[in-house]
Design a protein around this nucleic acid. Structure first.
Length: 586
RNA sequence: GCCUUUGUAGCUCAGUUGGAUAGAGCAAGCGCCUCCUAAGCGCUAGGUCGGAAGUUCGAAUCUUCUCAAAGGCGCCA
């Protein structure tokens, strides 16, 4: 169910009938003022400009050809060529009632319509460095990626998650050398690695100061990479425990990543020399100053100097450029991806642009496979500088999340002193984590954003608690009415009476449109905006339209209860895509 | 030096491929609980969209220049 798409098809047909080319964009958008109707089509003006004709006359022709019978109650021509569309309330009512009965709250599944097949989408996100604990810098990739993944799946695409964990590289030599000594001292790996930050720090101190240790560490890297069994065993132990740390975070964050989604850097190790051989054989890469590099003319600067992309170090070692090229081939080949999406911070934008160009040249990434690097900004403190602890250290993600729950708990207790300890624990977890996630997800992906406890947990305005509150208010009505929401699904017809109900209906019918925008641009903030608007319209409806009051007729009562039911489903479903949980009471 | 991103109300942010009078939330001010959860609702105020020029019926959005911030640019990832 996508109103915008239905209107786009109708207006397009009218445009063609009026003599415009087939690919003319009808440019349907929501009207920004009630007197301009519900939707407007602005495409005629652009088209008239291209054809150098009078926009008003052209628009008149299009409107004459436009058949919206049954859908619109009024179509008006305004200004230089705006076509304002007032939707027919009867039509809206029919659509709304269909959505009310639908398990996917009106979102069409891929494959149902022609030209809308399910795609295989590979999504690379989270990707923490296993040498250390996850810190706040990993939050955005993890939750933005997960939200997009869930949106894709909800729409019906086949998603293959790829957690490209940093589990390989020189620092692991130092770590396994240190671990080896700890185990020799009769320590158990789990205890030695209980605090990864400490462990890393200890190893680093030894590496920098202790005589002979650095040499051992370097030797261990070489041994590890050449397949030495003892080193591999130590490495595996380290990796396993570090992954367990990450899994705890995913669990806390309600993120859908599983161990089976891990495809770490080490997994590409055996393929790297092949990648280089192919690049050399195809004369894409050349030797320069001892290293193997690709000179990318497509990205030359004004003076014609090509961009440089190193794929193998002069000593023969490989870099993350090599790994990412190998990943391109694996994903488009073995995984048969139609589309590849990568979530990393914006600093890597240049790198991924280079990877794509080289991979396409080398044939690792066929023409028809989409490749999308989705960068995001950093998390800043109140002072606008990178978010750090008071002493300047990185903030562990686990600690941040714990603090969110503690803060939520204090606030809930204050609002609701009689709450039981069990309820408090459960609700503060959902509210605290939800608040952190929503604050992040609701911001535009590309810019840096300021992390602030106060605004995200204020419980006022556009926050997760506001949405959760709207949801629990609805549940409260059901419980007060003694009605199981599921019983409303089939027998009840919703009627639109008040303007607040119409506004709500219109918003409900925009879910698919919103999801599609989230999917194509990888921007969950659009879904956040949508859900906030939905919740806000519900609150307005709640104040204006009594449901369980004595003077409300049974018909109106059941109609409104059913409307509540659709809003409740939509909110729950939308928040679920964001990985935010709801509760019946708060 | 070159490249990328960002700059919108006091603060935090939206703003769909150029569309009509630039929108929310917080903070500020004023109202609304004998009534389904006031973690709420309604109203008021707040802006030369960093600056300048250009493109056109029409610019926060496109082009050029400029100012400011952040980041990247040959052997880390």
């Amino acid at each position: 169910m996508n109103i915008k798409q239905i209107l786009a098809e109708k207006v397009s047909a009218a445009m063609v009938a009026a003599g415009l080319p087939e690919d003319t964009n009808p440019a349907i958008s929501l009207s920004n003022r009630p007197q301009f109707g519900d939707y407007q089509a602005n495409g005629v003006m652009g088209a008239a400009k291209k054809l150098k004709t009078n926009p008003r006359e052209l628009a008149t022709n299009v409107v004459e050809q436009l058949d919206l019978s049954g859908i619109a109650s009024k179509v008006e021509l305004a200004g230089p060529g705006f076509i304002n569309i007032h939707l027919d309330e009867a039509w809206l009512t029919v659509q709304l009632n269909q959505v009310a009965k639908d398990d996917f709250t009106g979102v069409t599944q891929r494959g149902v319509n022609a030209n809308d097949d399910a795609k295989t989408v590979v999504v690379d996100y989270s990707a923490p460095n296993l040498a250390k604990e996850m810190h706040v810098g990993h939050l955005r990739s993890t939750i933005i990626g997960d939200a997009v993944v869930r949106a894709l799946e909800f729409r019906g695409d086949k998603v293959i998650r790829q957690n490209h964990m940093g589990d390989w590289g020189t620092q692991f030599g130092m770590l396994i050398a240190h671990l080896s000594d700890k185990l020799a001292g009769n320590e158990v790996a789990e205890t030695a690695l209980a605090d990864l930050e400490n462990f890393y720090r200890e190893a680093k101190i030894r590496f920098d100061n202790e005589e002979g240790f650095a040499d051992r560490a370097r030797a261990d890297v070489v041994k590890l990479q050449s397949g030495d069994e003892a080193c591999a065993k130590l490495w595996q132990q380290f990796i396993d425990i570090s992954i367990t740390h990450s899994e705890e975070i995913y669990e806390k964050l309600n993120v859908s990543l599983k161990r089976s989604d891990i495809m770490g850097e080490s997994a590409y190790n055996d393929d790297l020399s092949t990648v280089i051989d192919e690049l050399m054989a195809k004369k894409i890469a050349v030797e320069d100053q001892g290293a193997k590099v690709v000179f990318i003319d497509e990205m030359a600067n004004k003076d014609g100097e090509p961009s440089v992309f190193i794929v193998q170090k002069s000593g023969g070692g490989f870099l993350y450029a090599t790994t990412d090229l190998s990943a391109c081939r694996y994903r488009s080949g073995k995984l048969a991806a139609d589309r590849i999406i990568i979530f990393t911070d914006a600093r890597q934008a240049l790198h991924f642009k280079q990877v794509e160009i080289v991979a396409r040249k080398a044939g690792f990434l066929p023409e028809n496979v989409g490749y999308q690097h989705c960068p995001f900004g950093m998390m800043m403190g109140d002072d606008g500088k990178p978010f750090k602890t008071r002493t300047g250290g990185t903030i562990k993600l686990a600690e941040l999340l714990d603090e969110a729950v503690v803060r939520a708990s204090a606030l809930i207790k204050e609002k609701n002193p009689e709450i039981s300890d069990d309820d408090l624990a459960l609700i503060s977890k959902k509210v605290g984590i939800g608040a952190v996630k929503f604050a992040d997800l609701s911001k535009n992906r590309t810019s840096d954003y300021i992390f602030n406890w106060k605004t995200m947990l204020s419980f006022e305005g556009a926050t997760a608690p506001y949405l959760q509150y709207a949801y629990s208010r609805i549940q409260s009505i059901f419980s007060k009415a003694g009605i199981k929401p599921s019983t409303l699904k089939n027998d009840v017809t919703i009627n639109i009476i008040e303007p607040q109900e119409k506004a709500l209906a219109l918003k409900i019918l925009q879910l698919e449109d919103t999801i599609d925008a989230v999917i194509s641009e990888c921007t969950p903030n659009l879904l956040c905006n949508y859900l906030y608007e939905l919740a806000s319209l519900y609150m307005t409806f709640y104040e204006a339209c009594p449901i369980l009051k004595e003077d409300i007729s049974d018909d109106v009562k059941t109609s409104r209860l059913a409307l509540c039911q659709v809003v409740s489903d939509t909110l729950k479903q939308g928040l679920d895509i964001l990985g935010i949980e709801v509760m019946d009471r708060m």
